[in-house]
């Protein structure tokens, strides 16, 4: 009989679903529909094969990371599972460079001590100490960049970002988790158009995703809108303009929402500018990162503009 391993304990599956098996033993796993529909009971397999049935209806990005629904998972072999949110491995990394990308955003480069697998656009947990942890998105791309890179915005009174601005320096040893999240580029639909909208350091994952898509020979349009209050809040402007010159299918619109927009910049809230440029998003893939209010509004508005729910990827930074 296949076993289910969870939280260091091993349980006989005895023909039951992973959810039934664990709850019968008094382990509490959130659930609702018990029929593979609501996705409340999502878990991730850290070892063992997941039956395809248990992944029905999950986004490709989640399937690729061995997520599954506990209520429809009848294990065919031993399986070790963690709750979707838990169970990320940790490792040491060395800070190799800290630089200002603008007055409020720090670029941080890290060299992991062990081989580090990730997809451009995912995030890591960054440990200030054992109990103080924050998520930061990866701006680097495997296969292009040797090191990991982060863009961290200074949050007033911020425990972790404040500490980074004050005292993080090259040579420091820190702890990070493995990469997680489903906001990344999946090859396979090279003709699909892609819209990316970000505010502030929300550019970090988008910068990775764009370069990953281009590296994969993406053929459809790749259209980036990056917004801040004023031009000083933007960064990587020259790099992105150069990238747009080198790739006919990539376009870059920096947006400012206060004062007047100088030449080469659009004026307005970044989401409004993006939707004005692309009123019909049927068939598009959409990436949204940064300010949580912007991201929430953008999820709804890009969906109403025609993007399919399964094609909208978002990381609200809060």
């Amino acid at each position: 009989m296949p076993k289910v391993v969870y939280g260091g304990q091993s349980y006989e599956s005895a023909g039951k679903s992973v959810l039934e098996c664990l709850t019968a033993q008094g382990v509490s796993i959130p659930s609702s529909c018990h029929s593979g529909l609501c996705q409340t009971c999502m878990m991730r397999a850290v070892s063992g094969a997941v039956p395809a049935k248990a992944q029905a209806g999950l986004k490709d990005a989640l399937v690729a990371q061995n997520y599954f629904l506990a209520c429809t998972c009848y294990p065919e072999q031993d399986i070790e599972a963690v709750l979707a949110a838990d169970g990320l491995d940790k490792q040491q990394a060395m800070v190799t460079k800290v630089e200002y990308l603008n007055a409020d955003i720090l670029g941080i480069r890290l060299k992991p001590s062990q081989p580090f697998e990730y997809r451009a656009g995912q995030f890591i947990n960054f440990f200030k100490d054992a109990d103080t942890v924050r998520c930061y998105s990866l701006a680097s791309v495997p296969g292009i960049d040797d090191e990991l890179s982060l863009h961290v915005r200074k949050v007033p009174g911020g425990q972790v970002s404040g500490w980074m601005f004050e005292s993080l320096k090259a040579g420091d040893a820190i702890t990070i988790s493995e990469a997680a999240g489903d906001c990344f580029y999946l090859a396979g639909k090279p003709e699909q158009n892609i819209l990316l909208v970000g505010t502030g350091s929300g550019l970090a994952p988008l910068y990775g995703i764009i370069r990953d898509a281009l590296r994969n020979g993406h053929k459809g349009k790749i259209s980036l809108y990056h917004g801040s209050y004023n031009t000083e809040g933007l960064y990587l402007v020259d790099e992105l303009r150069k990238l747009a010159q080198a790739h006919a299918n990539f376009s870059y619109v920096p947006c400012v929402s206060e004062g007047a927009a100088p030449q080469g910049y659009a004026y307005g809230m970044v989401l409004d500018v993006a939707l004005e440029g692309h009123p019909d998003l049927s068939g598009w893939r959409v990436f949204l990162c940064g300010n949580p209010d912007m991201v929430k509004a953008a999820q709804q508005q890009t969906f109403l503009a025609g993007a399919s729910m399964g094609e909208i990827f978002a990381d609200p930074f809060g």
């Binding site: 529909c33 529909l37 609501c38 996705q39 209806g57 999820q299 969906f303 729910m309 399964g310 978002a314």
Partner: peptide, 17 residues
């Protein structure tokens, strides 16, 4: 309004099923 769209996709699917 304000509900998580990703979770809603699954819940709407539950509704329709």
């Amino acid at each position: 309004d304000g509900l998580d769209m990703v979770k809603q996709a699954a819940k709407q699917k539950a509704f329709l099923t």
